[in-house]
Computed example of a mutant assay.
Amino acid sequence: MTGFRNDRAAAEFAALRALSARVGADPLLVQAAGGNTSLKDDGVLWIKASGTWLMHAGRDDIFVPVKMPPLLQAVADLDPAAEKAEAFVVADLNPLGLRPSIETTVHALMPQRVVVHVHCVETISLAVRSDAETVVGERLRGLDWVFVPYCRPGLPLARAIAERRGRETNVLVLGNHGLVVAADTVAETEDLLARVCDLLARTPRPAPQADTDALLRLAAGSNYRLPASPEAHAAASDPASCQIAAGGTLYPDHVIFLGEGSVVAAPGETAQAVVHRLAAEGRDAPMSILFPGKGVLMRNDANAGAEALARCLADVTARIDEHASLHYLGAADAHQLLNWDAEKYRQELTRRMEAARQ
């Protein structure tokens, strides 16, 4: 990769790619095409491309160079062009024609040279609580951090961050969304990420083993199958997790890859019966179905992104106190996400990646 002013900057970029691959390979930090990382150098922001997977950073060119000064001016002017940031890409250094991450404005507004944004399940499980700012504050005491209530990812979130962060703020906890850490070197950023995740970590609630025999019987004659990840079953086999999931949508990527909320089967209902019930209500066949006390079934055409988010639901809900008051995303939030061009683009790239594998 060319375009860096010196060998030191190029070495930092290589370190960022290595960190991105490590982070992206950890399902407790990043799921599917979620999360993004960046490096600023000589007025250019190198940001993960929309729809690409961080875990592939070591083998693929997944970063896009974006000119910082005009992008920041567009944010200040509330220019809609800042939302996609495509107008600010350094075309000569983007031979693949990649599109900047939907979070490009967030990275640009952080003054630190290196920024890492993850959908850490430890963070999300606290950030969905109604008292998130208080409980997180107890764990991150002594750090320069801020809590940002849920906003649609992209420019609205960037504006909310700009209003709340201080000059030295290097940790952002995003309501119903995830975690951002920033520092001036890749090594410092990785150390900060590890420290914050350790401070927010809790032991997940143990879940009963999935009843796969029962699930296969419930899937008979339907367009459903067992999930790729056995860990996904815990969202349904554990009663507390299932009840939490049934309450609604907890974070944006759930909407994007699994649909709004979680579909829970009634006692005795088969997968086919669930589909018929929803069809009578004018609803599509769900990407996943939770069978309380048994486990989860996935639609046959569920892609890698949906599979990753099915496991994420289990990982997040297992860490939520069953007695906590939670803030779920509303129908308007889901509608915003599902009809947002940036997310449609990200989903299309996921479909293309699946097709290429077959």
Rank of each mutant, 00 (worst) to 15 (best):
D7L: 12
A15V: 07
L16W: 03
L19I: 07
L28Q: 13
L29N: 11
V30Y: 01
V30Q: 07
V30W: 02
V30L: 06
Q31K: 05
G34E: 06
T37A: 13
D42Y: 06
D42A: 11
D42R: 09
A49D: 05
S50V: 03
T52S: 14
T52C: 09
T52V: 08
D60F: 06
I62N: 08
I62A: 05
F63L: 15
K67G: 11
K67P: 09
P69K: 03
L71A: 10
L72I: 13
A74H: 06
V75G: 09
V75P: 00
D77H: 09
D79N: 15
P80I: 04
A82R: 00
E83H: 13
E83K: 14
K84G: 14
K84N: 13
K84T: 12
A85T: 04
F88C: 14
L93S: 07
L96P: 12
L98W: 02
L98A: 14
L98G: 11
P100Y: 04
S101Q: 08
T105D: 06
A108G: 15
L109R: 08
M110S: 12
M110Y: 05
R113N: 12
V116R: 00
V121S: 06
V121F: 08
T123Q: 06
I124L: 08
S125P: 08
S130G: 14
G142C: 12
V146I: 09
V148C: 06
C151D: 06
R152E: 09
G154K: 06
G154N: 00
L155T: 15
L157E: 14
A158R: 00
A160Q: 01
I161R: 00
E163C: 00
R164S: 13
G166H: 10
V173A: 05
G175K: 02
G178E: 03
L179A: 09
L179E: 00
V186W: 01
E190N: 10
L192C: 11
L193Q: 04
L193F: 06
A194T: 12
V196S: 05
D198L: 08
L199E: 07
R202H: 10
R202M: 07
P204V: 04
A214F: 10
A214T: 13
L218F: 11
A220P: 03
N223D: 11
H233F: 11
A234W: 01
A234Y: 02
S237P: 15
P239C: 09
Q243T: 10
I244G: 00
A245E: 03
A245D: 05
A246M: 03
T249F: 02
Y251D: 01
D253P: 05
V255A: 10
V255G: 01
V263M: 04
V264I: 15
A265F: 14
T270A: 07
V274D: 00
R283C: 07
D284C: 10
P286W: 05
L290C: 07
P292V: 04
K294A: 11
K294V: 04
G295C: 03
L297N: 01
M298C: 08
D301C: 01
A302F: 06
N303Y: 08
A304P: 02
G305V: 02
G305I: 04
A306W: 01
E307G: 14
L309M: 14
L309H: 14
R319T: 03
S325R: 12
L329G: 04
G330P: 02
A334W: 03
H335K: 07
Q336E: 10
N339T: 11
A342L: 13
E343W: 15
K344R: 15
R351L: 15
R352E: 09
M353H: 15
E354D: 14
A355H: 09
